[in-house]
Write a protein that binds this DNA or RNA. Sequence first.
RNA 1: UGGGGUGUGGCCAAGUGGUUAAGGCACCGGUUUUUGGUAUCGGCACUCGGAGGUUCGAAUCCUCCCACCCCAGCCA
Length: 571
Amino acid sequence: MTNTTENSTDSSSTTERRSNFIRNIIDDDLANGVNSEVVTRFPPEPNGFLHIGHAKSICLNFGIAEDYANAGGRCNMRFDDTNPAKESSEFVSAIQNDVKWLGFKWSGEVKSSSGYFDQLHEFAVELINKGKAYVCSLDGDQMREYRGTLTSPGKNSPDRERSIEENLDLFARMRAGEFGDGELSLRAKIDMSSPNIKMRDPVIYRIRKMSHHETGDKWCIYPMYDFTQCLSDAIEGVTYSLCTMEFEDNRPLYDWVLDNVTLPGPTRPRQIEFARLNLNYTLTSKRKLKRLIDDQVVDNWDDPRMPTISGLRRRGYTPSAIRQFCENVGVTKADGVVDVAMLTHAIRADLEETAPRAMCVLRPLKLVITNYPEGQVEELASPTHPAHEHMGVRTLPFSREVYIEQDDFMEDAPKKFFRLAPGKEVRLRNAYIIRCDEVIKDDAGNIVELRCTYDADTLGKNPEGRKVKGVVHWVSAEHALDCEVRLYDQLFLAENPDTEDYMQHLNPESLVVLNNCKAEPSLAHTLPEQRFQFERLGYFCTDRYDSTAEKPVFNRTVALRDTWAKIQKKG
RNA sequence: UGGGGUGUGGCCAAGUGGUUAAGGCACCGGUUUUUGGUAUCGGCACUCGGAGGUUCGAAUCCUCCCACCCCAGCCA
């Protein structure tokens, strides 16, 4: 017997990780003894919420740490909080929640650049002592002028040859608060004629008389990114410092700092860049996302239309779908734009397997089954998932009056319309086959009710001699649970909304609220963030904030694929 | 006109001198189906940004060219 079972189980819960160029580098380093440990870090700036682009970085960094566990793999959570003007503790906790929710665990305590301010200051003094840094008095405009351009070299600051003693004194007085914002700065003494502009004596410390959310008023000078990142990595023993491509030019500076300072430990971190995630029909610029909030286009950072982790969460996305999506996208250095269809595919694939089925009528149309006994109620046992028996059954009360979807009836139906029409038959999902006998309209000509008859011999079986193709979802009128459903759709109509006029590309129907929806009674005790498939409609989740026992609120995560809509579009 | 990167089907992406150029998404068509869902089967790059060259053999090596992205914050 050579029968194997390797393909027989569903592996939706385990994310199989592919290799990529970074993992190849790590493998080589491990094989060649360049490193014996694999330590990464996720270093967000707490100046906004994490978005889907960050998810890629999170999955990369934490994923590597998990997979290299036998090489001491770990990933630090570090807030890169060197700019008190933009950062706040509100974001610190939101970011931690998002990372945890995605299912990752960081190594040890949460860390922050501000936690290293004392050490960073000492490194700066060391650089001054070595004649590798100087206090400069150029203001912003002068600094730019002295820096040169892309094609012409810069020129030396008049303060470049200041003595070590004077630099030490000035730097101490900067720290003591003797100067105002921007009056003085500390610069690395590298090369004003470098073709790499990042190397033209970059500022490494600036004066910012502002209290910091972590360090309060202890400091009025703050280190710059390029000085902070590499040293924080070194302090933490990070071996692989992964960042996005735009920092490629910063890498020589990253290395320069490490080369010119007495490293705090044996680890020499290495920066490796990868391409950031771009998604079509999606905005991932923090500045522009913030404006959507400020302009009240959306409610907040966690509005279900936002591409933030917490927005996706409230929309009903699962952590595993997001992780799988990042896995499918891959990690390379080539910049591109990923189709959001890959994201929606990931959540559909996950929920198809895991979401319990339920029925909910969004736009109800009353239907009376004239040959069904008045007052009779049947409890129909229906599978929670058609393909997974182990998920059990729920009961659906069936009675004389039910609601069906307005869209599922057409008075003058085209041939291909497999739903209800006068004289035609359709299956009520999990129940009987019915035939439409009569259409009742109000004075204005609106269809207000359908009169039908049912075939009592079609419960759990197909009738003989005829085929009924259409299946329609329904809810017993008497037992229906009133609820609110929020239909979310893409926020932007333009494939690339990341332009100056992005506000012009908003989808006016990114949110449609339906207040007269009828759900099957089993949904009465739904819990926040429970996910369902409303059969034939899509995947929905109970809103984690607004849903109550009296008035459940469901958010549409994503619609089911709709071939009928496609056929209609074709005409 | 400086420097740093990247170019494989509509979109991601494997591929590291010898494979019929993986796979996923999207799309198109068939089958199954009490979700027009799912599942399943089939189709979808004589060609790897372009042109030369090396080689018995090139997406993979060399040369030149082209396109796109990033860098001139005391932001990260």
